[in-house]
Amino acid sequence: MKTIFKTTLLCAIVFLSVTHVFAFDVKQNEQIIKIINAFKAQDKVLISTLITYPLNRQTPAPAINNQQELVNRFDEVFDQNLINLIANSDIDNDWKAKGWRGIMFLNGKLWLDGGKIRSINHQTVNQANLKQTIVEQQKLTLHESLRNYKQPILQWETTKFRVRIDDLGQQKFRYASWSLDKSFSDKPDLVLLNGKQDFDGSGGNHYYTFINGKYTYRCDVIVIGTSKSPAGRLSVLKDQLVLLTDDVVEVLK
């Protein structure tokens, strides 16, 4: 009997603990309801006040820097499908509190922090078309040896290098780097192929790794971090020994 009581008590404690982790407080609940109602009304101006800027977009589309830009580019960010998902969402089932990372909607489609939308992981048709236009224009600015790719992944300036990663198609990634005294139109100092992408949890953080003999080049993209976190980090390892860690100074578009 005592064993059954202890087991029941333990289960109750675990249940309460899990419920506490994922439950919203009154303020969070009100913040989510405000966002849901704004999308129900499809009020672009109101929605623009519920976003933290700059709002980064998928490379190579430029970030949205203020409320007016959001209103002007609204259809690039939100299509009717995403609007309906948010407007008809259920707080208990579709929104999850993730501690210091904020509040997640539908497995990371949106992330909230402080009651505002911090990131949007959804691609509309309009954004896809914009990206393709930019890609074709951007190819003309690259060294001719790098112009064959499906889509750009990132362009960084670190404290020591300029770095670019491209998707060549079928999840085959290419790494290219230059010294800071060179531009992307110059022949790269180093090109590595057959890179792979891995994700670090559901927050959006991910990384790309490239092998060059005994050396491993790793580019960490930091989507969810602290206020002091860089946008990314380049690491170079020989076997398992870290030779270099180099923070991103600027994300180049």
Rank of each mutant, 00 (worst) to 15 (best):
V135M: 10
N107D: 14
I134P: 07
D113H: 08
K131N: 13
A87K: 04
A61G: 05
Q127M: 14
R118I: 07
I120Q: 05
A38D: 04
L50A: 10
K44D: 02
A63P: 02
N66H: 12
S119C: 02
G114S: 07
T52I: 10
I64A: 00
D94G: 03
M104C: 11
V125H: 12
L85I: 03
R57H: 10
I36D: 02
N81L: 06
W95K: 00
Q132I: 09
V71L: 14
I64S: 04
K44P: 00
K44L: 04
I86C: 01
Q127L: 15
Q127D: 09
A41T: 04
N84E: 09
K98M: 11
N88G: 05
K40Y: 05
E76H: 02
D43K: 12
R101N: 07
I86T: 01
A41S: 13
N126C: 07
K139Q: 09
Q58E: 13
T141K: 14
I103N: 01
Q42A: 12
A38Y: 05
D92Y: 10
Q58H: 09
W111S: 01
A38P: 00
F74G: 03
I51Y: 08
L85K: 06
K116H: 06
R118M: 12
N37R: 03
H143S: 06
Q42G: 06
T52G: 02
I86Y: 06
I64L: 14
D79Q: 08
K131Q: 14
L142S: 04
I64H: 06
L85N: 00
T52D: 11
K40S: 05
I103D: 04
H122A: 08
T49P: 04
D43F: 10
G99K: 11
Q58A: 12
L112E: 00
L55A: 08
L140W: 05
K96S: 09
M104V: 03
L50F: 08
K139P: 03
L106M: 08
A61Y: 10
K98F: 06
V71F: 11
W100A: 14
G115L: 11
N121T: 03
E69M: 15
V77D: 03
W95M: 00
V77S: 10
P54G: 09
P60C: 15
R73K: 14
N107K: 15
L146E: 05
Q67V: 01
K44G: 02
A38I: 04
N93D: 06
K116I: 11
